[in-house]
């Protein structure tokens, strides 16, 4: 990757010779893949809901499929953002909704119930990946009740804060006197 970026560097600017370790973990790549998968699936559901319902033998549910498509796209965008953990949990919730909707179509009179069973299997597998990625990308911020170091002695004023306040007041008073004098002078005809 850096070989390409080196080409666009301004002449004379430093170019990468050897790249150091990345901060990205395998789970970040997984989250990214799931995010793009979510967007792809969402686009299909939104723009071709009839194809989806026909494949599953669930004709008449196009509006629901379209709504699921919007949900998939939003969850995908969130999974690709810095708030990926929220996006991945949204996907886990979405997997539950998908499974519930598929189960409702798994009736004995559905000629495509084989496809539904296959889709359920896929949802199950993807839900496991979503759950794993959501667990592993938990924000590493310390909990609100965690013990924290406090800095009550870091005033930044080596002479003490009161001495600074006093000096500032004296300067302000002096400046005020000067302003009054200048005002008096301005009033002299």
């Amino acid at each position: 990757m850096f070989h390409f970026s080196n080409i666009v560097r301004t002449k004379g600017d430093p170019k990468i010779l050897e790249s150091g370790p990345s901060l990205k973990q395998p789970v970040d790549q997984l989250a990214r893949a799931l995010g793009w998968f979510s967007i792809g699936l969402g686009v299909v559901e939104f723009f071709a809901p009839r194809r989806v319902t026909e494949t599953l033998g669930m004709e008449g549910h196009e509006t629901m499929v379209r709504a699921f498509g919007v949900r998939e796209i939003l969850a995908g965008i969130m999974s690709l953002s810095v708030d990926k953990n929220a996006g991945l949990w949204a996907r886990v919730g979405g997997d539950g909704l998908d499974a519930a909707a598929l189960l409702s179509g798994l009736t004995p009179d559905n000629p495509k119930k084989g496809n539904i069973a296959l889709a359920l299997l896929m949802v199950g597998g993807i839900a496991m990946l979503d759950y794993r990625a959501a667990q592993d990308t938990k924000p590493r911020r310390p909990p609100r009740d965690a013990r924290r170091k406090l800095y009550p002695n870091r005033s930044g004023f080596p002479k003490g804060i009161e001495s600074i306040r006093t000096a500032a007041r004296q300067i302000a008073a002096h400046a005020g006197q000067n302003e009054v004098k200048q005002g008096d002078e301005r009033r002299i005809p």
Binding site: M1, F2, G12, D13, P14, K15, I16, L17, E18, S19, G20, P21, S22, L23, K24, D28, V82
Partner: peptide, 16 residues
Amino acid sequence: VWHGKEDIRCDTVTDP
């Protein structure tokens, strides 16, 4: 060096 979103690395680069 910035390599992308949330990806900064300590790289070896040419001297300025």
